[in-house]
Amino acid sequence: MLIADEFFLIAHNDSRGKAKLHPSATGLGLAGALLGELVLFGQITVANGLVTVIDRRPPADALAHTVLDQLVGESQHQAVRTWLSFLAQSATGSVGERLARAGVLRRQENRRLLRTTVSYVPIDLNAVAWPATRLRALLERADPPSVPDGTLLGLVAAAGLTREVLWSAGPRAHHRLGALIQSLPAPLKELVAHTEAAVGAAVLRGAP
């Protein structure tokens, strides 16, 4: 499962598919995860506040392919914060649809008066709860987690989801989380920092 998928499940670990975060924080965290997937695929890098495409070959995943096409097509825009804000607008729906196609969630439309909202309901509650459980177990172990898992943990912390992962963990896990974020490769560490700053700014201005 890709990191944006796991982030989505941690952020919506609820039998009704209800988000644990403010919509803007959820969207920005998922936007960071979608960019993180492309960094991990070796197709973009992040440095000095800018996103740079280094490999235009389409990735196997359809959503990652779409995001890469957007980066290539709008190459005049390179600021990480610009792309986080842009991708955040559609990230929840895009990743939710990817998980629905994978059979993890079920798309559900709710009509009220003149408005239709879409939610993504778990098909198997254990599958939805697994990413948070898995990350908690990783932090309790002595072995360092993989770079993708470290990136996911960094984005979880950046978006304000730490409690969902560490609610029953001991002091060792809390300490390791901070150390892991600091030890990420430079592009991913910077991406996590920009995501955290974007989430903080959105919360301060009360973004919808």
Rank of each mutant, 00 (worst) to 15 (best):
D5Y: 00
S75P: 02
G49F: 01
F41Q: 14
P23E: 01
L28D: 07
S119E: 02
A11E: 08
A47F: 12
L63H: 13
G170Y: 02
R134K: 09
L139E: 09
P148H: 06
G200T: 05
E140M: 07
H12I: 07
F7L: 09
T26N: 03
T195W: 00
R172S: 13
F41D: 05
E109L: 12
T195C: 07
G93C: 04
S168R: 07
R141N: 04
F7S: 00
A25L: 02
L177E: 14
A207S: 11
Q70A: 06
N48D: 15
V67Y: 11
P145A: 03
A60S: 12
E6R: 15
G160E: 08
N110Y: 05
A88H: 04
E97C: 07
E74S: 14
Q70W: 13
G32M: 06
A179D: 14
R115D: 14
Q76M: 12
L34N: 05
W83V: 03
E196Q: 11
A198Y: 02
L191E: 09
L113R: 15
V128R: 08
S15A: 15
A79F: 07
G93Q: 12
D149S: 10
D143L: 05
L177P: 14
L177T: 14
G32N: 06
H194S: 04
V104H: 12
A169T: 12
A62D: 08
P148Y: 10
R134H: 06
A159H: 03
A157K: 09
V121Y: 04
A173V: 01
D61Q: 15
E97M: 15
L139Q: 09
L63Y: 02
R106F: 01
R115I: 14
V80G: 08
A193M: 10
L166M: 14
A91Q: 03
G42A: 02
R115Q: 11
L105H: 11
D61H: 08
L84Y: 00
V39H: 00
A197W: 00
A207F: 00
G103L: 14
S15L: 15
V203G: 02
L114K: 07
W130I: 08
S183N: 12
L153P: 01
W83F: 10
V51G: 09
L63C: 12
L191K: 10
A132S: 15
Q78M: 05
T66E: 15
E164F: 04
R107A: 10
W167K: 01
G49I: 00
R107K: 07
Y120N: 04
A142D: 14
E37I: 04
L35W: 04
P185W: 00
T52F: 07
V39K: 03
P58M: 10
H174Q: 15
L38G: 05
G29H: 07
L63I: 13
L2P: 01
A47H: 15
